[in-house]
């Protein structure tokens, strides 16, 4: 029986879809069987981030309405084949076309086959959110170190609890170490103070993410990218491995300088 994890945020544009694509790909790279489900009905996105937009025939709505079999709608990844599949969101119809009960039945079926089922939730707290959380065992909340995103994350944590999804884990996305250093961006510990939930990972802001999205290839497979490393770390943590959080704070120069001043340097 696989795990069903919803990836959510409240606020839009903080990187839910990018996170879903990268964690899914990262888990597949670690040998897991993964299914990604785009639950953002009417605003399909995960397909383009994964680079699979040209292969879509059926979508989530076709499956829940019984117009095709589940297997027919699952799109195989370019790199990982049937170890990483995507169930795309329907693009055209109204957003309450799918019910939470249908989502629950769908995720139950998927977890029979896959080790991880990752649900990419839409922004907001309405019908789409309820659909996305309906079948999930646990939740990952994505935020960025800005006031509006953290506020919405707090709200979402409350709503997840109301939906009986306790102990969500946090991913802090788009951290800019130089801004944190000069005190112009909230640090990981600042956000930890405020939200007081488990931190699953910290992802540095990385221009290469835009490049990788342009190409439709999740950055997690790029060995040179820092953001890719951050996603690889998170994927390993999801498998229960203890991986320390990436150190984004200390600049090497500064560290050396401090040691020099405190008389430690040789």
């Amino acid at each position: 029986m696989g795990k069903v994890i919803v990836i959510t945020s409240g606020k839009g544009g903080v990187g839910k879809t990018t996170t879903t694509a990268n964690l899914g790909t990262g888990l597949a790279a670690l040998g897991q069987k993964v299914c990604l489900v785009d639950t953002d009905i009417g605003l399909r996105n995960l397909d383009v981030v994964m680079g699979l937009e040209n292969r879509i025939v059926y979508d989530l709505l076709h499956v829940v309405e019984g117009q095709c079999r589940l297997r027919q709608a699952l799109i195989k990844d370019k790199q990982f084949g049937d170890r990483l599949v995507l169930l795309p969101a329907p693009q055209t119809r109204e957003k309450d076309a799918v019910t939470p009960e249908q989502m629950k039945a769908l995720t139950e079926e998927l977890r029979e086959e896959y080790d991880f089922v990752l649900l990419d939730s839409p922004a907001g707290i309405e019908h789409g959110f309820k659909n996305a959380v309906a079948g999930a065992d646990t939740a990952i909340v994505v935020t960025t170190p800005e006031i509006a995103a953290v506020r919405d994350a707090d709200r979402i944590i409350g709503l997840l609890e109301a939906a009986e999804l306790y102990d969500p884990q946090l991913i802090i996305n788009r951290v800019r170490p130089n801004m944190v250093r000069r005190g112009d961006m909230m640090s990981i510990s600042d956000i930890d103070d405020i939200l007081a939930i488990d931190i699953l990972g910290v992802v540095p802001d990385d221009q290469d993410i835009i490049v990788s999205t342009n190409k439709g290839e999740p950055i997690v497979t790029d060995p040179k990218s820092k953001a890719g490393q951050a996603y690889r770390n998170i994927a390993r943590r999801l498998l229960g491995e203890e991986v320390p959080l990436m150190n984004l704070q200390e600049r090497k120069m500064m560290h050396w300088f401090k040691r020099l001043l405190s008389g430690e340097a040789q």
């Binding site: 707090d154 909230m186 600042d190």
Partner: peptide, 24 residues
Amino acid sequence: LFGGFEGSKSRAKERLRLVLVHDR
């Protein structure tokens, strides 16, 4: 001199704390 002083993040944190008390 090398970045120990408080930037705008303390304002953000303070405002966030307050708004969350209201929200919660």
